[in-house]
Write a protein that binds this DNA or RNA. Structure first.
Lengths: 343, 343
DNA sequence: CGATGCTGGGAAAGCGCTCTCCAAGTCTCC
DNA sequence: GGAGACTTGGAGAGCGCTTTCCCAGCATCG
């Protein structure tokens, strides 16, 4: 309950018998300071229990040692279910974990910024004002204007997942198309004669790439057309899609699903419909989320090295902050197929 | 690329032809200002595109509009696997989601602070310095000194999960013991004659409470002693524990597992061992994580309203910030049994 | 009509820090 | 021995904002 005023530089200076400037120099290790004074100052520091006030420091240095993790969901209006869906998906945690693995050793903090369409302007303003040194953007909605705004305002940023429209900002992404091709090849190799597909939201680039990649590869295997249904990345929507697929095309013997959660839903429906997996219908998901491993039968899926990608995003941002002239770049990760029991 | 200096209060004042003070008053809606000037100022604001600098503001008001989500893991040394495990568990995301559901509408930001044993002192200093207005603490290790330090320093904080040792800080928690009792009753009602238990780390209060709650209730059902094994909350460790249980006590016909992830592991082992679930062995998990629902057979588990709890934690913190005299309190949630297929 | 409140706006003092100047001291070198 | 180069510490000017204090103007009241 010590609401005592915290010691400031001034106090330390007084105790050490030097000027504020000198204490500041010692603490920041800038310029040579007489070793004796150096010693003196440090002892005054821990005698007073001084801790630098980052706010004040940031105000003048224009550096905060913080990066923002911006989660952009343009359409949100408050209690929409989006948030709960998003956060309970392991996706979010994996990204945070990846970022932290790089940021933490670098002594950089992470601030979470959720922002809807209405908040874009304020967010950019805050960032320009130095709320954070840079931003890692997780942009969900298609046609999100945010990446463009960041670029226009010269805010150091890195995207996770390619932007819907080309924008001069670095990003890391997965070669979704290649991952889908892996799945297609696998299904083809199993001898599927009637492969189908369950896609995600049509405005999410990752989803679109997965589906089109799958189609292309399947086309090379002679399947000009594929039955398809779409969901919104939730397990329930995957189940729904599977049901509709099953009723419209009962002959289906293989299905590629745009993410694991939906694949899980599909699995349940297949099971309830009495189809054996993978004997009657093979299923391949996407992401290699922990749920894929836990499922029975264990889900064959496409691995998405999200932690590595996020870590790399953090690294890119950090270099960019270090040297603002760093070129905009993109790093595309290669997915791999994780063969388990469903295909 | 416009690295132009951002407009400041001063600029707005000049445009509006008033003093800085007046602009500040208008923007903060403090005191009556002549309606005409009011108008004038606002138009100057959006003519200049002014966005208040939060850093500067916080420096003087000593309020940041930010709360810290402190993840305390005392023993960490950098690349330890703890982080990845922690973040990929849906637990983290659910907490963030719950917090955000309250914080966001309140216009409060969340800053993530991971801190190891070495960082405690600095963290407290930073918080006292006003890095954040308060903290929500996710304290993993037992005997974490952090809650105590926060209390001693008068930092507004709320814990998620009860502190290992009594400390004058509000917290939200689940009645883990009651949840375990639910599981015990269920198992007993099924007629289990040889129930066993798989516990989590012995230094995690939640885990300890679950296990002891289970034991007590089972004792009331006449089971004085239970075969047990322990894991570390991961799926693999659950599998391991199940294996050892099975070999030492083949007669087991029911098992209570301290969390869902481990239960999933146990399920796999049982299946591989040719035991039917729930006919031969009934299994009950804890948490009602999404994985529980996805598992086949779907896992019977104890529901843990983590989102609600986190939201409440945020609410408690907010009230506390609003009125520092608010009494320390604790809110204990009642768990419910979610009967699915495994028991 | 002068004294008394009110009201609304400006001047200016900080919040805690960094960093540019500047001055004083120390060395070197012709 | 004195000019120049270099080192080291202090003064002080901000960073962008809030907020106290004060004063001018006006209505109210005895």
């Amino acid at each position: 309950m010590q609401s005592q005023r915290l010691p400031t530089l001034e106090d330390v200076a007084r105790v050490a018998g030097v000027s504020r400037a000198t204490v500041s120099r010692v603490i920041n290790g800038i310029r040579n300071v007489d070793p004796q004074l150096h010693e003196l100052v440090w002892s005054a520091v821990d005698q007073t229990g001084y801790v630098p006030n980052k706010l004040a420091r940031s105000l003048v240095t224009r550096r905060t040692g913080t990066v923002a993790l911006v989660v952009s969901d343009s359409e949100t209006h408050d209690d929409d279910p989006f948030m709960s869906r998003f956060f309970s998906d392991p996706y979010f945690g994996r990204v945070v974990g990846g970022l932290m693995s790089v940021l933490r050793p670098a002594g950089v903090q992470l601030a979470l910024q959720m922002v809807g369409a209405d908040g874009h302007k304020r967010l950019v303003g805050d960032l320009r004002n130095g709320q954070a040194d840079g931003a890692v953007v997780l942009s969900l909605p298609a046609h999100d204007p945010l990446p463009g705004m960041l670029a226009d305002n010269g805010i150091p940023a890195v995207l996770i997942g390619r932007p819907p429209e080309p924008v001069p900002i670095s990003y890391v992404d997965l070669d979704n198309s290649a991952g889908a091709a892996l799945a297609a090849d696998r299904l083809a190799a199993r001898g599927c004669t009637c492969p189908a597909v369950i896609s995600g939201p049509p405005d999410v680039p990752a989803s679109v790439d997965r589906i089109s990649g799958f189609r292309h590869t399947m086309a090379r295997h002679g399947h000009a057309w594929l039955p398809s249904a779409s969901g919104n990345f939730t397990q329930e929507s995957g189940a729904e899609a599977m049901r509709s697929l099953l009723s419209s095309h009962p002959a289906i013997d293989g299905v590629f699903v745009a993410n694991d959660l939906m694949a899980l839903g599909a699995l349940l429906v297949l099971r309830d419909a009495g189809r054996r997996v993978p004997e009657d219908v093979a299923v391949i998901g996407f992401d290699d989320s922990s749920a894929a491993l836990a499922a029975r039968p264990a889900l064959t899926t496409v691995r998405h090295p999200l932690e590595d990608m996020s870590a790399e995003a953090a690294r890119l941002l950090l270099t960019r902050l270090d040297d603002p002239t760093t070129r905009v770049t993109s790093i595309i990760y290669e997915p791999t197929l994780v063969p388990r029991q469903t295909a």
